[in-house]
Design a protein around this nucleic acid. Structure first.
Lengths: 264, 264
DNA sequence: GCAAAAGTGTTAACAGTACACCCATGT
DNA sequence: ACATGGGTGTACTGTTAACACTTTTGC
């Protein structure tokens, strides 16, 4: 317990953030709704290691700031968005995970409205698709230029602690570092977080239709939901505004807001 | 993104672990079951800061080991127990939280069988009692010598991210550092983890009665459960061994094991 | 009218709760 | 016999899932 902090080696500590959004896909047309897609923010690396490969936004902690503040600072740089709620995901500290040295990464996830974000240079939204069989997951990330990055990830059954097995060779069309498994883990957390709609609200304007909300659920969960059941499920969290949204070739939708009384 | 790790200040990184157990209380007698109590492992500090105050077991990370391995190493020292499953709780990095300097703490929680632990010097089990009203929690820790440590803790509503507000003066009969709020958070996680019985199984021998299992639930949740409902709830996770446990002044109990088929 | 989407109602299955009752044992 | 805890059944409730049906709009 006697410890002189100057006497021992210390690691560099970084914050990495998995930023999700749900974007309206192209192909909107009369009498057909667009299908929103789940996307994640990635930054193309401009340096070795893993140069030119996409990586999670992140950066190193400085003195006088918490790890969360580091994450906020980096998010502001990359997206222009101020201090969105962050959820802790995992700490990665396996020796050798970063060729530059002893670097510990604290990973967080969040959700932001892409229409309010001004993403920076080298950054971009990548469409996410995850297919899972038991503990084996296949993650496919598609950039707006059509480039595809495929990663096979195996998580242990509790999802609590990473094996952090050595990654001898990361394929060229994959993600930098161990960022693929971070994203898979974040997606699982995001999905289970949808038991309550708070994360989804952050992807919508003040007033929204229940169909828009449902589409966000469907984009994140990657499956169709039954309208009647969905509306009952989220009814306690929303309230009508009185407004309606017309103009489409069908019955106009009522506009809702998140219910203020319900403590988040 | 250009980063020379030798150029910047680096924090010390520590792992702190909240180790829970459920101990049989004293006062066992004929025709009466003992009431097990939830306890947490604390170590009396032998140095400044917070000398003589109880603190969570933990220690600093060394090179070539992951944070989890640091936690395992410290747990082995304090309890003799090898590598129990660890769950990540939170990272504490508020500037000034440790007067010794820039120290980040990665906190984990786990559950171990106290009968299999050989706890070290200065360490001891403290009975835990938590009373909550909204986001205000009162934590009372009672040592085996009767000493009491009381802490008032306020968590933000999501329990996701700590406020890490400055603690000007920590009362003498409280816990060292910000360890009280860590324990409160760990208790909330422990309780919600009981939706599945895996943590409880780690507190029991290979064969156990359903009443023993229920008592662990009641000790952790701090409330009585109805036997019939409890048995239905955990039925999918256990199976009969055929053995029975007699000798008491009442109908003997069947002995159960955790069901192997059910993937943990 | 008709396609498309908004919105409601009805049913069955299931899980959670509270409670009543019987069973087996040692003293 | 009886106290004590082990163990089971049942009725009530609320939630979830599936599906059928009606409503409102623009073309």
């Amino acid at each position: 317990m006697d410890y002189d902090i100057t006497k021992y080696d210390r690691p560099s500590v970084a914050a990495d953030i998995v930023v999700f959004t749900v974007r309206k896909s192209t192909g909107e047309s009369y009498r057909h709704l667009s299908k929103p897609v789940l996307s994640v923010l990635l930054v193309k690396r401009t340096e070795e290691p893993f140069i030119n490969m996409p990586a999670l936004p992140g950066g190193f902690c400085c003195r006088e700031e918490t790890i969360e503040e580091t994450a906020f600072r980096k998010l502001k740089e990359k997206t222009g968005v101020d201090s969105p709620p962050l959820s802790l995901l995992c700490n990665l500290s396996r020796c050798g995970r970063d060729p530059r040295g002893w670097i510990i990464s604290c990973c967080y996830w969040t959700v932001i409205d892409y229409t309010k974000a001004a993403i920076g240079k080298n950054a971009g939204w990548y469409e996410v698709s995850l297919s899972s069989a038991d503990d084996r997951h296949t993650l496919v990330l598609t950039g707006d230029d059509g480039s595809e990055y495929v990663s096979e990830v195996r998580l242990n059954n509790t999802n609590e602690l990473y094996n952090q097995s050595a990654k001898a060779d990361i394929p060229k069309n994959s993600l930098a570092f161990d960022h693929a498994e971070i994203i898979v883990n974040a997606m699982l957390k995001l999905r289970s977080s949808l038991e309550k709609p708070y994360a989804a609200f952050r992807l919508l304007p003040e007033k929204f239709t229940l169909t828009e909300l449902q589409q966000i659920y469907e984009a994140i969960l990657d499956r169709k939901l039954l309208m009647a059941n969905f509306r009952r499920k989220i009814a306690p969290y929303v309230e009508e505004t009185g407004g309606i949204e017309g103009g489409a070739g069908h019955r106009p939708s009522k506009l809702f807001t998140k219910k203020a009384a319900d403590a988040e």
